[in-house]
Design a protein around this nucleic acid. Structure first.
Lengths: 219, 219
DNA sequence: ATATATAATTAGACATGACTAATTTATGTA
DNA sequence: TACATAAATTAGTCATGTCTAATTATATAT
């Protein structure tokens, strides 16, 4: 069941291409992987033999259940490592892709889980892409910043854009976590700071730096 | 100048074998890498062509300047990652070797430096092995094999030469870790096995295979 | 409907890094 | 010294994953 480096890259590419509604053709995969269609076809046969995909000319490549699970696992690792590189090693968000492309292929039963915990279980990577959970579930993308809501708005915390230790500690102190409800009581014109009530508790004042980094789902 | 995964493993093996005073023969390398001498000879030719080693039957394999630098770079990365896995991800020190074997091959100009800084520039890995600096310099550490000590000697565990899971698990069971004190109670002439007391605890008998792989600082 | 372009596919080759089996070279011992 | 054993080496093979070039199939445009 172990997959090679190359197989993993194909599965990942097929997953990403499959998100659009075009069919996943050998040509499309070759473009994505910067190799040629002949190589792709060879590999598609191997992946089909291993029941990781089904492929025919008409439908294109379609991930099987196990193929999709494998793809999501790699994407999960990729994005977790990106968070690590940016948050912990101080890389710029534009420098980490190539390194994460390598790190995503490290095989270890416990690694993703331990890394995830170490990073504070982030929902999004430094580019804002959602990080699949261990079971493959994608976090719902909450696209509204708390800072973009208005007074009287009721919403729920969907994700956190800054996963620095300092910020996460601050949130813990405020008792703000994923799924917490937030009611916007007042928004100051002056500096965009807000008075909010967390889970219908005492009103608290938070800065725009805080509200910029909280993504919410409107109710 | 980029090296393949395989080349890096050979360079590392040759470096480690070169530390002993035996010549680094194809057989020795094959044993270390658990492959066969024919494969080794093929690779030695390639490494020689790239001026990473010199090889002849009489001298065995000897790292060139650039070969040694490459080996030290990999060892540096291996040991830094081990520190990361143990210190940050809460792995046991007996679980990290196989993962570090993979991580050591990640290529990025800045990665080792950034990781080193993030970890607080450690000098030794979780097994007590010295971490080469960026320029290849090893931190000094004074150690003797436990097997070279005599009865009544009191000493402290400085590092461990075998990092296999089996060995580390055995040490964990004995409650031997870095810094543990060991008193040699008796050394058997017959098979060099020893009766020792760990942290002044119950006397225990250990084989010469065990004592050969423990490096100690004499008290 | 037919020419033309694009995509899919097959066949054959190649580089890497491994293997087995056979052969040569060293080493050690009676 | 001569045989036995172990190590080194060579030759040939194989799996993986890539490539180019040639062929076939499909789409598109006139």
């Amino acid at each position: 069941m172990k997959k090679t480096y190359s197989e993993e890259n194909y599965l990942k590419a097929i997953y990403h291409l499959g998100k659009s509604d075009n069919k996943v053709s050998p040509k499309a995969i070759a473009d994505a992987l910067e190799n040629n269609p002949a190589s792709v076809i060879d590999m598609l046969k191997k992946l089909q033999d291993k029941d990781l995909i089904s492929y025919d000319k008409v439908q294109g490549a379609i991930l099987s259940h196990s193929g999709e699970a494998a793809a999501l696992d790699i994407i999960r690792k990729h994005r977790l490592w990106e968070v690590f590189l940016v948050e912990k090693l101080q890389y710029g968000w534009d420098e980490v892709h190539a390194i994460a492309e390598q790190l995503e292929h490290i095989h270890d039963e416990q690694l993703a889980k331990k890394l995830d915990d170490f990073l504070g279980n982030p929902s999004f990577d430094p580019h804002g892409d959602p990080i699949p959970a261990q079971n493959g579930k994608m976090p719902v993308y909450a696209s509204t910043r708390l800072s973009d809501t208005e007074a009287d708005q009721l919403c729920k915390v969907g994700s956190v854009r800054d996963t620095s230790t300092a910020f996460l500690k601050y949130l813990k102190q405020l008792k703000v976590g994923l799924g917490s409800s937030i009611r916007v009581i007042e928004k100051m014109e002056f500096d965009q700071s807000m008075i909010i009530s967390i889970d219908e508790g005492e009103p608290k004042t938070v800065s725009s730096k805080m509200t910029d980094n909280i993504l919410v789902i409107l109710e």
